[in-house]
């Protein structure tokens, strides 16, 4: 059992120990009565592993679980993004039903900066609800025809017919009012152009207009700007007794490659615990009983944010910080919170 206040989570073969977070005021005498900003500033680190267009991987070290989890939760459900919400069908003679097509359209991630739009007032009159400030209009007009130049003998539908597959890229942006100006440089397009929406055959057509509005993941998963946003804790491998020779190789095999290295003496050492997936395979082997201790560091969060493409992943994280800050501000300004 790690001692009180230890920030190492124990990974046993059948359970996880010491899981509770403790980085908050009055948790124990050792830590002190009040939360100290200066101490936090000293302790806190942000290390970025890599950031690409769609993914960001970074470490937050030295903050309480509740805060890290709040970021995760906010990224999933409260950072606003734009998605198709209203679909007006003019004609749909395809096999896919109106509702299903609309549902599929809604899930298509759109490349729109959510800051360029304002919120739709749900209580407004139907006619005044949608303006050029809060709504983006997309349209989809596809009809399938036979391909007159089809190669004989090739029976693939893509060859025989034109527009046999309807893709997300077929959605056309129709700028309204001032949007001609504001969206001049970066017109609204789906993040992934090749999402299959429907399949058509000659004589069938789809004609519709879609209104895209601002929303949050709590309303519907389609408004969530992340494919996933989560964290894991940094693994810790503690070799208590030296493991050498054949056992070392076996020990190495219990972990993903690159986690355990073997030095010149043939002794296993921890090369890169971060690469470990904590499969606990080593705990199944009796011969390593007592020789190794697994754990995870409770205040070292390895965040992984995968964007759907609408926003950059780091931007999503910053927005989550902003949302959390706003919430805190709101609470601070609440009458109840101000009671001395």
């Amino acid at each position: 059992m790690p001692k009180l206040g230890s920030n190492i989570i124990g990974i046993e073969s059948d359970r996880v120990t010491n899981t509770h977070s403790n980085d908050f005021p009055a948790y124990s005498k050792d830590i002190g009565e009040a939360w100290d900003l200066e101490a936090f500033k000293k302790k806190f680190q942000l290390n970025i592993s890599y950031i690409t267009e769609r993914t960001a991987n970074f470490d937050l070290i030295g903050l309480d679980t509740s805060i890290a989890n709040a970021f995760r939760r906010i990224m999933i459900s409260e950072v606003p993004s734009v998605a198709i919400e209203f679909v007006y069908m003019f004609n749909n003679t395809s096999v896919i039903q109106d509702e299903v097509l609309a549902h599929r359209l809604g899930l298509v991630p759109l490349k729109v900066d959510p800051d360029l739009l304002s919120w739709v007032d749900p209580n407004a009159e139907e006619k005044e609800k949608f303006t050029d400030e809060n709504t983006i209009v997309l349209s989809l007009n596809v009809s399938c025809t036979r391909n007159p130049n089809a190669v004989k003998g090739d029976n693939r539908p893509e060859n025989l017919y034109k527009n046999s597959n309807v893709y997300a890229k077929d959605l056309k942006f129709e700028p309204q009012g001032r949007q001609v100006e504001t969206f001049k440089d970066h017109p609204v397009v789906p993040c992934d152009p090749n999402i299959l929406l429907a399949k058509l055959r000659p004589g069938q057509e789809i004609s519709l207009r879609a209104h895209c509005v601002l929303g949050i993941g709590a309303d519907h998963a389609k408004f969530s700007p992340v494919a996933t946003a989560s964290y894991r804790l940094l693994p810790l491998i503690d070799i208590k007794e030296p493991i050498t020779g054949k056992d070392a190789l076996e020990f190495q095999d219990c972990f993903p490659s690159g986690v355990i290295g073997i030095n010149d003496k043939g002794e296993a050492y921890v090369k890169d615990a971060r690469k470990d997936t904590v499969s606990r395979e080593v705990l199944r082997h009796e011969k390593f009983n007592g020789k190794v201790k697994l754990g995870r560091i409770r205040d070292h969060f390895i965040f992984n944010v995968e964007s759907t493409g609408a926003m950059l992943p780091e931007e999503i994280f910053f927005k989550s910080v902003r949302v959390l800050k706003n919430k805190a501000d709101y609470l601070r300004n609440c009458p109840i919170g101000n009671v001395e």
């Binding site: 989570i9 990974i11 996880v16 120990t17 989890n69 904590v278």
Partner: peptide, 15 residues
Amino acid sequence: DMLYSGTTGEALQAY
């Protein structure tokens, strides 16, 4: 697998 609680963010005590 080791899971984390969605509400508290802490690791769950059971696998």
